[in-house]
Design a protein around this nucleic acid. Structure first.
Lengths: 207, 207
DNA sequence: CCTGTAAAGTGACTAATGTTACAGTTTTTA
DNA sequence: TAAAAACTGTAACATTAGTCACTTTACAGG
């Protein structure tokens, strides 16, 4: 079952490799808000998102901000800077929804990288994706003000949740965007008067 | 000569690969401020910085901001998102000093990735480095105000130039930090009164 | 050693965001 | 179901950064 999902997700990988992956890795389940990676700790596995959505964020002092999301549909392999250098993680990752991850042991990953070029290519192309996601996030932060960023954030959420009605607290949004709850409250009001969103009870409907 | 430099820079690569690299790639020289990569254009080579410093930056609309530097001493391979997907570059790179770069043709790079695991590992570890540089930059932008960011920027420059006296225009700094000249002028004054820098004529001495 | 030009300095104003303080509202749970 | 806890709204103010208009300064080339 794992193999068939993997084969579907990564058609480029050889059958032999897929079997080896299945043999040596484990599936882990994470509940909503459960940590998959904690900034400052050491990573022993290379996680692959099989099901669910994973939020990747970082913090510096008390500041916290969203880097990007990883969904099973789009990108299956999780970014893993420092995995190989044996340095602590520079970011955290938590399950945004209940998630299912395949955990590849680092030692094996190193071995596969040296045996299967297809595996290396996969990892590399995935790194590119995350690099680019991060770049886009950085552009957002530097080039746009909160109004725009909040709207983009909400739209991204909608896409992920496949719904234009979001149940999310202002506090959570504030954390993700690196600002304070009051500010989100204020900016949401602005978006409301601009007819970009409406609030239904405590939910936000994105138009 | 190229091979010996490469061998020195990348001790992990096999002799055979080094020779192949030398055979199929060319050395290019870039003058100060000359473009190596232009955002929006297509990349046909994977550049490796042999000598000099390269500045990587990005822009969105009229906004421009520094991502990170690549120096020959630290990181030899240049980041190359989208090199393989045949998509336009998401950023620009210009020579910060007169630079010497080794240009590997993409077709060959793909081939090497599939033949030499050591090459793949090298590229991958380099990607990690750039990913991390970008992450640090993002942290700077979100978590610190201009005073701190400017000071860090100047200190980084000092390290690169191996001197604590910098000849750099306020306009250039402003571009790198994504702000305006007047603001840099104002913040520099603040740093001056805080005894973090002194100005000598039109140069900046970092204390 | 002038002098034109580019760079730097500055004051005044505006815009955006952060902060504080508190009131009102929903949701949870004991 | 009442009290507690968590969430939301908002006003007032502080801080930071962006913009405009203008002056002053440095310095390279004649």
């Amino acid at each position: 079952m794992k193999t068939s999902f993997l084969a579907e997700c990564f058609p480029v990988l050889e059958k032999e490799l897929l079997e080896d992956i299945e043999k040596h890795s484990t599936v882990a389940y994470f509940d909503v808000n459960e940590h998959i990676v904690e900034q400052g700790k050491y990573i022993k596995f290379l996680p692959i998102v099989l099901k669910g959505n994973v939020k990747v964020y970082s913090h510096e002092d008390a500041f916290e901000f969203l880097l990007y999301y990883i969904s099973s549909g789009e990108s299956c392999i999780y970014s893993f800077a420092h995995t190989f250098n044996n340095q602590p993680a520079e970011f955290s990752a938590i399950a945004e929804t209940n998630s299912e991850l395949l955990m590849l042991p680092i030692a094996k990953v190193k071995q596969w990288l040296n045996t299967y070029p297809s595996f290396g290519n996969l990892i590399l192309s995935d790194y590119q994706r995350h690099y680019n996601d991060l770049l886009q996030t950085t552009k957002q932060i530097t080039c746009y003000n909160l109004d725009q960023r909040l709207l983009d954030y909400l739209r991204q959420k909608c896409k992920m949740e496949k719904s234009n009605i979001l149940s999310i607290s202002h506090k959570t949004i504030a954390n993700d965007l690196g600002t304070s709850r009051e500010v989100i409250s204020r900016v949401l009001k602005k978006l409301r008067t601009a007819n970009s969103v409406v609030q239904i009870g405590r939910k936000i409907k994105v138009l």
